[in-house]
C-alpha cells in the first residue's frame, strides 16, 4: 500500500517526501475535523449526566420560572 503510494508519487525524492507530508497532513485534518468529531458522540465514555427524558418534568417544581425573580 505505502510502497505503491511511494512509487506513484511524482517529483523525484524531494517531491515524494513533499507528497508524503502533504498526504499525511490531509489525512490528519480529515481525521481530526471530520472523522473523530463524528465518531465521538457515538462512543459512550463522554456521558456524564444522569439521564432520563423525564428529568425536566420530575424537577419542574423548582424551575426558575416558578420562582419569584
Amino acid at each position: 500500500m505505502y510502497g505503491w503510494l511511494w512509487r506513484k508519487l511524482p517529483g523525484g525524492y524531494a517531491g515524494k517526501i513533499g507528497g508524503c507530508v502533504a498526504l499525511c497532513l490531509a489525512a490528519l485534518a480529515l481525521l481530526f475535523f471530520v472523522v473523530f468529531p463524528w465518531v465521538e458522540p457515538r462512543l459512550p465514555w463522554n456521558e456524564v449526566t444522569v439521564n432520563s427524558p423525564s428529568i425536566e418534568q420530575t424537577v419542574a417544581p423548582s424551575s426558575p420560572s416558578a420562582l419569584p425573580s
Binding site: 425536566e56 419542574a60 417544581p61 423548582s62 424551575s63 420562582l67
Partner: peptide, 13 residues
C-alpha cells in the same frame, strides 16, 4: 447546569 433544577443558592438542588 441541568435546566429546571434550582438556580445557584436556590432552595432545591
Amino acid at each position: 447546569h441541568y435546566p429546571g433544577t434550582a438556580d445557584p443558592g436556590g432552595i432545591g438542588n
